[in-house]
Design a protein around this nucleic acid. Structure first.
Lengths: 236, 236
DNA sequence: TTTGACGCTTGATAATTGTCAAATCTTCGG
DNA sequence: CCGAAGATTTGACAATTATCAAGCGTCAAA
C-alpha cells in the first residue's frame, strides 16, 4: 500500500519554504521516513478528532479541508500542490481539527509526525521555517474570519471572484477552481444561494457559463466588492 | 510618556510559556528594550493596516482585538492578563490585521518588534516557543471559524455560556466577562439579536439578570448546545 | 435630585439566508 | 447515442438575522 518516496520527488519538496533552509541530513532523514501514495478522488485522508500521525504534502491533485458538527459540514480550505497541511496539529501533537479528503486523484506525501517533531527539536532552521509557515497560516485564517464576519454572502462572492481573477493573471475570463457546491460551502452559504448570488452580481458585469466566469469591468465589480489587502491579499 | 519596564514585572513575563525557556541574556535584552505604559480605557493601541512596531503584552486590564471593513466593525477576541498579542504580524514584519483597544485601564508592555525578530533569530528556545504559541493561536482561530460556520447564533451563544461556566469552575451562576454589545459582536450578531437569543435559551434553563448568568441544569443546556472539544476546548 | 448619556430591551418590519421540491443541465459509463 | 446519477438552477416558502425606532434602566456629573 504505502510506497517509499522516490528520490525524484525530493527536489520539489525541498523547494518548499518549509524545507528549503534545513540541514541536508535532517531533510534526508525526514524523506527516508516518508511515504508517498496515490489516492483516488473522494478519499478521506484525515478525520477530525483523530491524532495527527502524519504531516501531509500534496504533490499533485488537490485536497479539501472540511469540518463537521451536528450533521452539518463546511469546507474550510482547498490545498493545492505543492504545499503541506495539518502542520499545527503535527507540531502540537494534538488531534486534527479538520478532516481532509482528496478532490481528485492525488499524490500525497506522508511524513510521520514524530519524525517532524524530532527534527523540529534539533534543526533550528526548520524550527524557524515552521514559525514563518504557521504565522502565515494564522494570518490567512484571520483574513478568512474577517471575510465571514464583516461581509454579506454577495460581498464574499464578489471578492472571491476578484481574487480568482488576480490569480488568473488578471484575465477577464477564468474558470472556477472547484465545484460550485464546494465554493458555496467555502463561502459559508448554500448552493442555492450561491446560484442566486451569481445572478445578483450580473448588474456588476459578472457572467457565468457553467464553470466559466467573465468579469466585464473589474473596476465596476470592485466598486461593489471593496476588496481590502487586509482581507483579500493572502500573500502577506 | 513611555516608561522603562520596572524589574518587578520581569518574573510575571518570564513565566509566560513564550519566554520561559529562552536564554537569560536574551530575555534581559528583550526586557531592556521594552516599555511599559498604563493606558486609560478605550484607547486604540493598534490600528489594523499599520506596521507592527511592537509585540504587546497585557499585564493588567484587558484589550479588545477588532476589525473593520466598509464602515462595519467586529470583535475578534479579548486579551486578558498575562498574554501577548499580534505575535504573528511581529514575526512576519507584516501589517497588523487587527486593531486593538483597551477595554479598561490597562498596563501594557511594548517590546520593539525588531528586537523580537533579532532574538528570534539567535535564540532557538525562543523560536520553538513561538512555534508552540502560533500553533495554539492558529488552532484557536480555526475553532472559532468552525463555531461561526457550523452553528446558528443561538447555538453559538449556548456554547459560549457553557465555556464561560467551565471557566467559572463549573458554578451554576457567573458573570459575563464583558459588555453584551461586545459579546454580540464577538459572537457575530447584533445586540438586539443577542437580547432575543438569551430569551431563546430560557427554555433550556438559562436566566439572565443584568450581567449575571445562571444555568439551571448544565446537561439540559448541553443537550441543545452539543459542545465539542474540537470547537469549544480552547486549551488544546 | 435632576439630567443626560449610554447600554439594553422590545416591537415592528425588512433583508438575508436557508429549506424543500421540482425542473434542467452535465457527465460519463454502457 | 442513451440513460442514470449527480450537480445546478429555479420557484415558493420558511427561518434567521438585521434594521429602525421607541422605551426602559443605570450610572454619574452637575
Amino acid at each position: 500500500m504505502h510506497k517509499e518516496m522516490p528520490e525524484s520527488d525530493y527536489p520539489d519538496i525541498r523547494e518548499l519554504h518549509l524545507f528549503s533552509d534545513m540541514a541536508h541530513d535532517n531533510f534526508m532523514a525526514l524523506m527516508r521516513g516518508a511515504y508517498v501514495q496515490a489516492f483516488p478522488p473522494q478519499i478521506e485522508l484525515i478525520t477530525e478528532g483523530d491524532p495527527s500521525d502524519f504531516l501531509h504534502i500534496v504533490l499533485t491533485g488537490s485536497v479539501d479541508l472540511f469540518c463537521s458538527w451536528n450533521g452539518r459540514e463546511t469546507s474550510m480550505a482547498t490545498v493545492r500542490p505543492i504545499s503541506t497541511f495539518i502542520l499545527a496539529a503535527t507540531i502540537r501533537d494534538a488531534p486534527n481539527l479538520m478532516s481532509a479528503r482528496t478532490l481528485e486523484k492525488s499524490r500525497i506525501v506522508l511524513i510521520p509526525s514524530q519524525d517532524v517533531r524530532a527534527i523540529f527539536n534539533v534543526d533550528n532552521s526548520f524550527a524557524r521555517a515552521i514559525v514563518a509557515e504557521l504565522a502565515q497560516c494564522y494570518r490567512s485564517v484571520i483574513k478568512s474570519q474577517k471575510d465571514l464576519k464583516l461581509r454579506t454572502s454577495l460581498e464574499r462572492l464578489a471578492n472571491f471572484l476578484l481574487r480568482q481573477q488576480k490569480r488568473a493573471a488578471g484575465e477577464a475570463g477564468f474558470d472556477l477552481p472547484f465545484e460550485k457546491r464546494r465554493l458555496a460551502s467555502f463561502l459559508g452559504m448554500t448552493p442555492e444561494n450561491l446560484s442566486r448570488a451569481f445572478k445578483g452580481l450580473q448588474p456588476y458585469g459578472v457572467t457565468v457559463t457553467g464553470t466559466r466566469i467573465t468579469i466585464a469591468d473589474q473596476s465596476d465589480l470592485e466598486k461593489f466588492a471593496k476588496p481590502s489587502p487586509l482581507i483579500d491579499d493572502h500573500s502577506t
